[in-house]
């Protein structure tokens, strides 16, 4: 337990110090949100309607882009071999690394999303709903992404491949996240149904991601 806690603190320190690049994701998120109105036009009604989708796509892309460093830095300096050979179960190590990574890069995305929602002319209910779904949904994205990060760990330019591998698997999270966020303001479905499925997907990913990621890391090693 102490080992895992130490790992969590180490990961956070590495991510937040100079050169860690934790806030780069939020900056990218801001740029995506800024670029969309240039594409679809400054129609405030339209932006309010597709706002949750823009925020979700932005968060998804920002999460994916930061994921390729999840295991690569450890592989470069040899830590990864020690971790794989160590006594602590690799699945738990991956889980803790994901949690630390999410705290450093995912949580800032959730925190800034209400601010970006204001740019998109969203109403308070929609802002609250979108932020809540992002809070529940972005950990799922990190866990699923960890599988891709583990699979591409030995590749020099794995970032693009990681996104290609992971994006189809994030389709369900995306669907239920955006559905829950839009359901809060428009009528056909209640907010709770898609939100609960989103939470279930998150819990499922918290199991699948570490197990598959650990398997991929082990097979990449020997």
């Amino acid at each position: 337990m102490t080992a895992l806690l130490a790992l969590f603190v180490r990961e956070l320190k590495l991510a937040t110090r100079v050169g860690g690049g934790a806030l780069m994701g939020s900056l990218f998120f801001l740029i995506v949100v800024t670029v969309v109105p240039f594409g679809v036009g400054p129609d405030l009604a339209l932006l309010a309607r597709i706002g949750p989708a823009i925020l979700w796509i932005g968060a998804l892309l920002a999460t994916l882009l930061s994921l390729d460093r999840l295991f690569q830095a450890d592989r470069d300096d040899g830590c990864l071999d020690l971790i794989v050979a160590g006594e602590t179960p690799l699945e738990l190590v991956v889980l803790v690394k994901c949690l630390a990574h999410w705290t450093a890069t995912g949580l800032p995305l959730v925190v800034v999303s209400p601010l970006f929602a204001v740019f998109l002319n969203m109403e308070p209910t929609a802002i609250a709903a979108t932020t809540t779904t992002l809070l529940v949904g972005t950990p799922a994205l990190t866990f699923i992404g960890a599988i891709g990060a583990a699979l591409t760990v030995s590749l020099r330019r794995g970032g693009l491949l990681l996104a290609i591998l992971v994006l189809p698997l994030t389709v369900p999270v995306m669907i239920f996240g955006v559905s829950a966020a839009t359901a809060a303001v428009s009528e056909p479905v209640p907010f709770l149904t898609p939100f609960l499925i989103l939470s279930a997907l998150g819990l499922f990913a918290a199991v699948l991601g570490p197990v598959a990621g650990a398997a991929a890391l082990r097979f990449a090693g020997d």
Partner: peptide, 16 residues
């Protein structure tokens, strides 16, 4: 590994 992850996910993707 990726194939098996896909097998687990395909029904979920289909459903969603």
């Amino acid at each position: 590994v990726l194939t098996l992850v896909g097998v687990v996910n395909i029904p979920i993707i289909k459903f969603s």
